[in-house]
Nucleic acid binder design. Structure first.
Lengths: 224, 224
DNA sequence: ACAAAAGTGTTATCCATACACCCATGT
DNA sequence: ACATGGGTGTATGGATAACACTTTTGT
């Protein structure tokens, strides 16, 4: 069914979602294994076709729920990929999104929907189906740049965290080392986080102060 | 799971293009007067439906050529508007773009395609059809922010220009006054422009040095 | 001669960077 | 006791921001 021959079919619309989380000190994305012909065995970013009565973003949220069992995480539109031959099954225009999850374990609940679904470090990705290499690159670039001029990193963090954990999150996403003292000075001056008064327990070494974000709303702020 | 089986109803795709130029010291966009019912008499951003065999960006370029007679200007995808009821004629998903023109006079050649087509200052816009208010706001915001971290302003400038003209371009887009001496110091330090050795002629007052951009390729640079 | 835009430097302040040692805990 | 990550301050350099007068031309 090479979709574009009869009448006014224009294009079929789909969404693809790059779902980020930090797992074991790596920035990871969630991939599913394809079963469709042309790409059987390849990994791809989760996604699906849009229903006629459904807003585009609702479609992204629906597929995000299906893949990662997450329904209230950060989701932002990325880019619309509209080349004619990007899908060998027919003309499919894809609106891509990226999502940020504070906990990679979220998705474990109903993972039976897919043949296989796994977190992959962005430094060690398998070959991807369609133009999903481009989609993923786009997402990483957007995430990196947005991290430097907004507070969206809170979407990748648990409710409470240590300053070292927050610094590691920045380092992992930006892929560069930061100076501990300068980082703390800067992050504390931004009025984004506050100490909870509690400290880590049960871990080896000196306990660390636990912080939380004062507001979980996106703000535009010069971070780094 | 979807309307994939119901004769490919899904969505019709269109593009909308916010076309910018600086005219008489104002940042302006090109608008066309609607003739379709529901919005007869309203102004709207140029655009049109996508052909089945056409990449999305090609559709934007085709409509840009039709509206502004421009075929090699800067064009960048903005955002995809996918609400179900954004078009009263039916379900139309629109991929929006913005374009930058170095000369507002370009479009005068074949303006007979439209009922009416005019430049409007962004400070004095008429009521717009569809969700084009949102599209325009999005475009202005993107242009402003991109002006501060890249050199794309060259797409709004003629081949040669004075430093005062360049400064006014920044001021008009960013909507704020800049200090003349600091602006010159900064812009000259960025290695983006070079003196042509020529000066303005025929104008009143002291002649100004004419500059040109060394490279007309987009670069990411901290400007302001 | 006058009106109007072009052109030109210095200073003070803020921010980013570089850098090393003691502290508190679990083992 | 020791290994390990947590926690802390200062000094320097570079960039930004504030600020006013002289020059050159057309009229």
């Amino acid at each position: 069914m090479s979709g574009a021959d009869k009448g006014f079919q224009h294009a079929i619309l789909a969404t693809d979602i790059v779902i980020f989380a930090i797992k074991e000190g790596s920035l990871c994305i969630l991939l599913v294994k394809m079963q469709k012909e042309h790409f059987r065995g390849y990994w791809a970013v989760p996604g699906g076709l849009i229903n006629p009565s459904e807003p585009v973003e609702a479609c992204a949220r629906r597929n995000l729920l299906k893949a990662a069992n997450a329904d209230d995480v950060y989701l932002e539109q990325l880019y619309t990929f509209g080349e004619v031959d990007r899908d060998p099954h027919g003309r499919v225009v894809s609106v891509s999104y990226y999502a940020l999850m504070p906990d990679w374990r979220f998705h474990l609940s109903n993972s039976t929907e897919y043949n296989a679904i796994e977190w992959f470090s962005i430094d060690d990705l398998p070959e991807l189906a369609y133009d999903h290499d481009d989609v993923v690159l786009f997402a990483i670039e957007r995430l990196r740049s947005k991290l430097t001029y907004s507070n969206i990193i809170f979407n990748l963090m648990p409710d409470t965290f240590t300053l070292s954990e927050l610094q590691r999150a920045y380092e992992v996403v930006l892929n560069k080392k930061l100076d501990k003292r300068n980082f703390r000075k800067k992050i504390l001056s931004l009025n984004q986080i506050a100490s909870t008064g509690r400290r880590t327990v049960g871990k080896a070494h000196r306990p660390a102060d636990l912080y939380r974000f004062k507001r979980k709303t996106v703000e535009i702020i010069q971070v780094l």
